[in-house]
Each structure stands twice: as structure tokens, then as C-alpha cells.
Amino acid sequence: MRARNVAVLLTVAVGVYLVLLAGRAVALIRDGSVPAVVLGLGVLVLPVLGVWLVAATWRSGARIQRLARRLEDEGGLPDVSDLPRRPSGRVDREAADDWFARRRAELEADPQDWRRWYRLAHAYDVAGDRRRARATMRRAIELEAADR
């Protein structure tokens, strides 16, 4: 629940920033001079992009949370609590690589199972590869949606 509270707080902060930015864009447009209007229109694009990015991020988070709940109900949620950790709290690199290799082998046995894609995405995250974790999680979401 703590992570969700932080996400809500950050979303509110971004929302306030976007409203203020939109206000500046409108003020520039109202100025009436050609350079100010062009700049105002350019600045107005930023809040629109910001709203789209925030909405897409929340939508993705909700989908991932749905998959996590479903896996938890099935008893298949990945558990890394037994992996050795560094003093910083991060999983030991060697242990993370080994855990990743096992998740990868599971996926290769059944590449159409969204659960295995979810666990591989989690393994990428534990290994510190966030870009691949996001891409793999998107694949898990696609397969789960087709499964429903």
C-alpha cells in the first residue's frame, strides 16, 4: 500500500505541474503576438503529453496488479525472499542470475503461458534490467488478455 500512496502523491504533484504549465500556455496564447502564440501552442502540447503518459502508466500498473492478484490467488506469485541479499537490500547478482536462468527455462518449456512471462519479467526486475522487465511484462499482459 505504501508504493501506491507514493504513486498517488507523485501523480498529484505532476497534475499540479501540468495545470500550471497549461496556465502558462494559455497566457502566452492570450498575449496575441505571433511568437507568443506559437510558443504557447508548443507549451500546450506538454500537458497533453503529460496526461497521456500518466494515464498510460496508471493503466499499465493496474493491469500488472491484476495479473499479480490472479497469480497470488493461484499460488504462483514469484517469491525471492529466500535469495541472498547485499547490505543495500538488493538481491545478490549471482543469485539473481541463477534465479533468472530458472525462470527463462520455465518459459522456454511453455512460451504461451502468461504466468511464465510474468515470472520472467519479475526475474528481469530482480536482475536489474528494467527495460526488458517492462517489455516482458507487456507480453504477459497480452497473453493474459488473450487467455481471458
Score class of each variant (00 low, 15 high):
residue 86 R to S: 02
residue 129 D to V: 11
residue 17 Y to N: 09
residue 54 V to K: 02
residue 103 R to F: 06
residue 21 L to W: 00
residue 105 A to E: 15
residue 121 A to W: 03
residue 129 D to R: 11
residue 123 A to G: 13
residue 96 A to W: 09
residue 14 V to G: 04
residue 22 A to F: 01
residue 95 A to K: 06
residue 79 D to L: 14
residue 70 R to S: 14
residue 117 W to L: 10
residue 139 R to N: 08
residue 62 A to R: 15
residue 89 G to H: 05
residue 146 A to Y: 02
residue 61 G to P: 05
residue 51 V to W: 00
residue 1 M to P: 10
residue 55 A to V: 11
residue 101 A to D: 14
residue 110 D to M: 03
residue 58 W to S: 08
residue 124 Y to E: 13
residue 46 L to Y: 03
residue 113 D to R: 09
residue 41 L to E: 00
residue 117 W to K: 05
residue 5 N to F: 13
residue 83 L to H: 02
residue 109 A to L: 11
residue 9 L to P: 00
residue 111 P to W: 01
residue 79 D to S: 15
residue 111 P to S: 05
residue 18 L to Y: 06
residue 1 M to G: 12
residue 101 A to Y: 02
residue 32 G to R: 03
residue 38 V to C: 02
residue 139 R to T: 14
residue 23 G to W: 03
residue 94 E to L: 15
residue 107 L to K: 05
residue 100 F to E: 05
residue 30 R to C: 01
residue 74 E to S: 10
residue 147 D to E: 13
residue 58 W to P: 08
residue 82 D to V: 15
residue 122 H to V: 01
residue 120 L to Q: 05
residue 126 V to S: 04
residue 125 D to S: 12
residue 31 D to N: 15
residue 134 R to H: 13
residue 126 V to T: 08
residue 13 A to E: 01
residue 73 D to A: 14
residue 75 G to P: 10
residue 25 A to R: 02
residue 17 Y to C: 09
residue 76 G to L: 15
residue 9 L to F: 11
residue 40 G to V: 00
residue 77 L to R: 15
residue 90 R to N: 14
residue 24 R to W: 05
residue 2 R to E: 13
residue 104 R to T: 02
residue 46 L to A: 08
residue 92 D to C: 09
residue 19 V to Q: 01
residue 97 D to H: 12
residue 63 R to I: 08
residue 73 D to P: 03
residue 39 L to G: 00
residue 114 W to K: 02
residue 140 A to R: 03
residue 71 L to W: 14
residue 35 P to D: 00
residue 66 R to P: 00
residue 26 V to Q: 04
residue 59 R to S: 12
residue 60 S to G: 13
residue 121 A to G: 06
residue 127 A to E: 10
residue 109 A to H: 09
residue 45 V to H: 02
residue 19 V to N: 01
residue 65 Q to W: 09
residue 6 V to P: 00
residue 131 R to D: 15
residue 137 M to W: 04
residue 34 V to Q: 03
residue 112 Q to S: 11
residue 98 D to K: 12
residue 143 L to M: 11
residue 27 A to W: 01
residue 19 V to D: 02
residue 120 L to R: 08
residue 137 M to I: 05
residue 112 Q to G: 11
residue 38 V to N: 03
residue 30 R to V: 12
